[in-house]
Amino acid sequence: MAKGFLDIRRMRYVLSVADHGSVSAAARALNVAQPALSYHLGEIERLIGGMLFERKPTGMELTLLGHLFVGHAAEIIDRIDEAEGDILRQSACKTMRETIRLAIIPSLASTLTPALYASFSKLMPDYSLHVIDARTAFADELVRTDKADVAVQLTEATQSSEEPLAWEDLYCVTHSSHGSGDMSLAQVAGSNLILPSSGNPLRQFFEDAARKHQLIANIHMEVDGFEPRKRVVRAGFGTTVIGARSINAEQLGPDLVARRIVEPTLQRPIMLKSRRGLAPDLRAKIREALVAAFE
């Protein structure tokens, strides 16, 4: 008796003959010529050294050896079909790729998006990235309702138990006619400040810093959104405050200057917030990619 007779194709042939009860019916179901199927059955029986079927006028009936063969063959074929299905499903998942939905405030999105895509492509190549331009309150809502997986936010580090993704210095944006170079916190607080409305994280951070140093921020005008604030500053109505990572020379243009705030230097944390139920290992990978993007 020779080993190696459990050929997958021939096992399927035997199973089909057992199911249909005749070689001719099995040949039609398999789309195989009947002489070829008969040949393969004969070869299997020759290799085994015993008969799998009794040829009767009523059809093909399994022998005791045939029942043993069919039992093992059916189990093997089922396992093969299951394995092929799992592999094909995994292949489809790799092709379609899972999407990471990242909400980020507009001022950061405008300058960091290329770095984000580069970082995620390198560190999480099996995922696609969907960047959602969303202000803090909207980003909170997206994460809370599971419409975003994570949000990059400018909140107090004390509100989280983990380290910030990064820190950024604050700058004062002024008209170029007002000079250049660093500005003290006292100078910025005393200027005609154009800041977002009350409750905005940037404004809250700046006002808290001013109060900490016995200063009162002179809020001259409330304008939400960095782009509108730039236009007001460009028109000569005052100054505004922005994080270093949101500064882009092309966006500022020749009329505006970003001047670092000193005495003291103001740094705010960039934090990560994630939706409930996000897998810890996936969150760790996302955090790693974000940290790399901020470097």
Rank of each mutant, 00 (worst) to 15 (best):
F69P: 01
F69K: 01
F69A: 02
V70S: 02
A73H: 01
A74Q: 11
A74G: 11
A74P: 05
E75W: 00
E75F: 00
I76H: 02
I77Y: 04
I77S: 04
D78I: 01
D78Y: 01
R79Q: 13
I80F: 06
D81S: 08
D81N: 11
E82I: 11
A83Y: 09
G85I: 06
D86Y: 12
D86V: 12
D86G: 10
L88A: 13
S91V: 10
C93F: 13
K94N: 14
M96I: 15
I100T: 07
I100R: 00
R101L: 10
L102C: 06
L102R: 00
A103P: 01
A103L: 03
I105P: 01
P106G: 02
S107G: 08
L108R: 04
L108V: 12
L108P: 05
L108S: 05
S110C: 02
L112Q: 08
L112K: 03
T113W: 03
P114M: 04
P114I: 08
A115C: 03
A115L: 13
L116G: 02
L116S: 02
Y117F: 14
Y117D: 12
S119A: 15
S119F: 09
K122N: 12
L123A: 08
M124L: 15
P125G: 07
P125K: 05
P125L: 05
D126Q: 06
S128N: 14
S128K: 05
L129W: 04
L129E: 08
H130L: 15
V131E: 05
I132D: 04
I132N: 03
I132C: 04
T136S: 10
A137I: 11
F138P: 02
A139Q: 02
A139I: 07
A139S: 09
D140N: 14
D140S: 10
D140Q: 09
D140R: 08
E141P: 10
E141K: 13
E141S: 15
E141V: 11
L142R: 04
L142C: 08
V143R: 04
V143E: 01
R144E: 06
R144A: 11
D146T: 15
D146W: 10
D146C: 12
D146K: 14
K147E: 15
K147G: 05
D149T: 06
V150F: 03
V150A: 09
V150G: 06
V152N: 03
V152I: 13
V152P: 03
V152E: 02
Q153D: 09
Q153S: 14
L154D: 01
T155R: 12
E156G: 13
E156A: 14
T158S: 15
T158Y: 00
T158P: 04
S161E: 10
E162I: 14
E162L: 09
E162C: 06
P164F: 01
P164Y: 02
W167L: 09
W167I: 07
D169A: 13
Y171A: 05
C172R: 00
T174M: 04
H175D: 13
S177V: 13
S177C: 11
H178Q: 14
H178E: 15
S180G: 07
S180Y: 03
M183Y: 02
S184D: 05
S184Y: 03
L185K: 00
L185I: 07
A186M: 07
A186L: 11
A189G: 03
A189R: 00
G190K: 00
G190D: 09
S191V: 06
S191L: 06
L193C: 08
L193D: 03
L193Q: 03
L195M: 07
L195S: 01
P196C: 02
P196W: 00
S197F: 12
S197A: 14
S198P: 03
